[in-house]
Design a protein around this nucleic acid. Structure first.
Lengths: 211, 211, 211, 211
DNA sequence: TATGAATGAGTATTCATTCAT
DNA sequence: TATGAATGAATACTCATTCAT
């Protein structure tokens, strides 16, 4: 009598469509009509699952943030040496951003919205804090194990996250920038003063020619 | 018989108003009506001086970028030791952002737009390149003078700008962040591996109690 | 094998719910969704028993009118003196309207609809005619028995019904109005010129202190 | 330099159009599109002069009420005998309603709305009170002059207004009703018990054959 | 019988832009 | 130059109704 529950599937179907539209047009310029088309559903169906455009934007961002956190946070819990783990995190984040290149612009718009909307600010800062916390734990670990200089782990984490976000920003504005190369250099600079030994770790030792 | 030329004054009057509105509502949500009110001019007057909303956004951003560049670029040409000049640049940028706190969000939205619009991308990357170039020259200078390690000046400059922009982003999202403190720490980390001597320069040595 | 017939029960369940919703929001602003909620049934069930919203409105009004007629018409057939019976009718109608205070607004909307829709007009005028006829018969009876002046019974009945409906209208618009007091006065004025004797019958002789 | 002020003219142009649409479709079923068409203006123009549909409804009703009051209240201040003045009022109201036959339905819908909306209630009861007050004054005048029995003027006025509104209601629902004839009869009944002398005033002595 | 997900035409409202004055 | 009334395309959202299960 009861049909299988398709609500989760539908919600993702809608968010997938919305994400594509947001990437192309930004939040403000995206229309429900476009989301309707892209989702191959009807207007009514969209509104059956979401209260309105704002809720779709919210859910879409939440999903992005979650995905972002998940992917990276996974890399933080391992037993290998700190440098290796930091490198892995960096590469993971890089891979992620390369694969979801388009989303970077959308996230930027979300941060711009955060400048005006307290609600958005709460959401986004929650995301960043989770990110920073995980990162700080990793650094604290490295300090404890004697691999890193005894710095304030949280501040160092903030520096790291800021560096990464800043590079992403530059890269969004100038896609010709070789993201990996620049990240390698920047991270190298920062790590050099954190590491007790190895003065110049190479984050991206394998030279690939595919970009 | 000819009235004095008020066009420059009027254009600034309009852009000043637009800037305020953009800060409050973002580009997309700002209306011409709001700009009209804030400028104490009429709709017709606005359209006399600007083709439309897009042109106002463009002109407004151009002015912001120019101001930004001016303020900081000035600091780059001096004869004092590199560290001092770097510190001055950092402080100058910090002051600037503290004074125009509101504009950070607007700029962020401009970068988000750049992700979609080639025109915007050109404009914004021009701005960043000018910034990076000036910064790179400063670093090259420092290397030449033997004050800095021989690194790729452009890459180092990018790292520096990225760090600054990333911190700004974090701070926009989380205004509770002590911008100066974190910038001092982050810049310290980066400078430490650039400088030949002083392992830990203090960017903000004077402790102020006003925040 | 055949389940008991629940259709009558269901129809009333739906109409009861609809009535509540109509009282709160009027016909036009009431939604099927609200009726669904209030009835604790499903959308499909509602549409199983009624063709659509219009049919529900129709059935709901029919039921209201019937109820109205039933209650009052009962009072018309008795053997007591005319004045007494008129007074009883008035009190009955008053009681009825006091108990279903909310419905007065709904009925008013129905009359407004009648101004535009011939179908509604037919329905509503049928209701009024039944009312007026019964009332006229009562008056004719009074005339025949020599209790009332020989007036046109139908016109007098119309006057009576109009007076009652008009007071209801005023009371809907101004609920602070003491319905009974005003009705007593108005009916008194009218009866005075109908009755052969008693110039000032008191319709509501019992003084209550509860309002 | 400044064009003539057309705002008053435009507002009336819009309200005239709205009134026609309201008469045809009622408030709820009337669309802005229809008002736009009927007014020969553009959507934007409508919204330039009115905030939205609700405001148009409000303004439209206000205008109706005002007109209604104006027309009738004028008749209340004269020096002729009370009966004559009452008759004049009745005829005036009748003429008015005959000329604006269509509006009766709209007013009914307004009263129905008043049942649900306190704001509407305030507006409508204000209208009725003004009406009743004027009427009461007339009656008090008659009593003072010894032309009428000493009754409570306000209650009598309410009775009169109720009678008139009730007849209008019946006539809206059943346009075949001879409004004047019935009003004459009903008013006669009521006046008979108010007047000290003339037992049966004829409100509409001139028999016209045009309806 | 009964469910509730899905449909899509319809609606109020906004807002960049124009243009007669 | 400057005004602000007027335009109308575009947009978010609603809701009666249908239909596969």
């Amino acid at each position: 009598m009861s049909r299988p529950d398709v609500s989760t599937e539908r919600r993702h179907q809608i968010l997938d469509a919305a994400e594509k539209v947001f990437v192309r047009h930004g939040f403000a310029e995206s229309t429900m009509e476009q989301i309707v088309e892209e989702s191959h559903l009807s207007k009514g169906a969209i509104y059956w699952y979401f209260k309105g455009k704002d809720e779709i934007i919210g859910a879409s961002l939440a999903r992005m943030f979650e995905r972002s956190l998940q992917d990276v946070a996974d890399q933080l819990k391992s037993d290998r040496p700190i440098v290796e783990r930091l490198m892995t995190v960096a590469r993971c984040a890089t891979d992620q951003i390369r694969n979801a290149r388009q989303l970077a612009g959308v996230e930027l718009e979300a941060y711009a919205m955060a400048a005006r909307s307290p609600q958005m600010r709460r959401r986004a800062s929650g995301y960043f804090n989770a990110y920073i916390d995980a990162f700080a734990k990793l650094i604290a670990d490295g300090i404890e194990k004697g691999e890193l200089h005894p710095v304030d782990p949280r501040k160092a984490a903030i520096s790291g996250v800021a560096l990464f976000e800043g590079l992403t920003l530059l890269w969004v504005v100038n896609p010709d920038l070789d993201f990996e190369e620049v990240l390698a250099h920047a991270a190298g600079l920062m790590l050099a003063s954190l590491l007790r030994d190895a003065p110049r770790p190479n984050l991206f030792p394998v030279v690939r020619g595919d970009h």
